[in-house]
Design a protein around this nucleic acid. Structure first.
Lengths: 270, 270
DNA sequence: GTACAGCGTTTCATATAGCGAGACGGAAGG
DNA sequence: CCTTCCGTCTCGCTATATGAAACGCTGTAC
């Protein structure tokens, strides 16, 4: 009879899991460890509930209490899970050698990324330009907006539904630089252009001074599973190079990875 | 009347969370994506339960279905969580510059690691030496046994309860190389020696051909929160260097990190 | 072509597991 | 000293997650 409990999100619901995930998110996005009460307030759950939940999450290693205090932060298990994901990702495994040779050829930073459910770009691999800094999750795992990055626009261009509209509706087309595309129609035609030419450009649309080329990677079923990019400072990235040799190399690399994943080379759309 | 539901693990229990974590673990440790039924069998839960759980985990991004199939694997959110942990870890942030200079000085591989609840070493940072040697299989997020690694023994030596006994009781003192310490008593005295001299050695006890020195990092409260190590191939790691200059440099670096974390320099034990 | 086996999905009645109001004790602060 | 704020614990209720069983689908065997 009382307030119809808001039918939350997905079709199948195991309340405890949704709630736990919500709390995990709170802790994940907090810059400092959180006390019980903070979590309680932000989550709008009852104190005993959160208490039990955090203790359980602690038991399974997803959170830990910073010793001495009652503050909670993410647990070690998160790192293990992240690493496990990266090791299991077939597209990443197949991409690595090709990305390396791409990086070595141009000495610029190379990225591998996918799209998450929120239409954000998540970096899955990053090979730094100059020095072989290592294959750690240095910036890997971070996300960036899709509409203003080369990787993001490439990935968006592979979607069937109208992602420009969705982003616009959510008010996410925020200006980042002078060149950012902040208009849904403009973005839509940009995506069409990308589909037509087979690669995507970022002309200082996200960060001033940074340009990049990106291209999509497909799996055996022809679905786009990831994108790769080569990025560098604008001085070393003249239009001619970017849209010429570099674009070709990037597209070729992407195609090479796709082939490794079992994609047939045909360019045939569905 | 039926089986007295085994009072699982921790004191506080939110069954759904424990179960979800268990299932996550299954998927995490599986080399290939798992079908529903596989998870059902391995988890000994009922089919509908696992079904709903996986769908929920999918909703929150911890798990994803590989497109086209009904197979589940870890989700992108795992990477984000792992990265968030690494960014939040103060000890890692403070350690990085010092680790870098250590790596640059000796051109050997440098590690930062912590102990998990199972008494295993989890690598949190790894800076490759000059020649990215393929021999060492360490990786950020990966874990290794503690009793036969430099980092592990250093961390174990900081524990109050008798970790040697616990490991022995669990039958984990497995021989890895000719030099592995597989005996509880021997391990116990090794740990005592480490405590006495302030650093730990790994003389090809984990991987043949690899030696290392490690030292502990303390926080403001004096508790050991992590350990660092310098590792390299046996040819470049003669005893004299290892126990001399390199040990000193490692201890100094560890102490430097501790100081950054607010530790007072006193060597005073509690 | 029909029967079968295995899978993911759905239903539904049930008991139980998770819930939250509130009480408790200890610590910090005025 | 009294007050406040926090983490922890109790307990009775009911909404919740649960699993047996049924369903429909797909691929395989016969």
């Amino acid at each position: 009879m009382s307030p119809p409990p808001k039918a939350e999100g997905g079709a199948y619901t195991v309340r405890a899991i949704s709630r736990a995930a919500q709390v995990l998110g709170l802790i994940q996005h907090s810059s400092a460890p959180m006390a019980l009460n903070q979590v309680v307030k932000l989550s709008e759950l009852s104190k005993p509930t959160v208490f039990r939940m955090l203790r359980n999450l602690e038991d399974v290693g997803l959170v830990e209490r910073v010793p001495g205090t009652d503050a909670y932060r993410l647990g070690l298990r998160c790192v293990a899970l992240g690493q496990a994901y990266l090791e299991q990702a077939d597209y990443r495994r197949e991409a690595l050698p090709i990305l390396e040779s791409l990086r070595d050829r141009y000495s610029e930073t190379v990225h591998l990324a996918v799209l998450d459910t929120e239409l954000r770009v998540v970096y899955v691999e990053k090979l730094e330009g100059k020095h072989a800094v290592g294959i750690m999750m240095s910036r890997v795992g971070r996300s960036a907006p899709s509409y203003c990055t080369g990787l993001g626009k490439a990935l968006l261009s592979s979607l069937d539904d109208d992602p420009a509209a969705r982003l616009a509706a959510r008010g996410e087309l925020v200006r980042k630089t002078d060149n950012t595309i902040c208009d849904a129609d403009q973005l839509r035609s940009e995506l069409a252009a990308i589909r037509a030419r087979g690669f995507s450009l970022d002309l200082e649309e996200h960060e001033t001074g940074v340009r990049c080329v990106a291209a999509n990677v497909q799996d055996a079923s022809g679905a786009v599973v990831a994108a790769i990019s080569v990025a560098g400072p604008v001085q070393r990235m003249p239009h001619k190079l970017l849209t010429g040799e570099l674009a070709e190399a990037t597209v070729a690399a992407a195609r090479g990875i796709s082939r490794r994943l079992g994609a047939v080379d045909h360019k045939a759309p569905s």
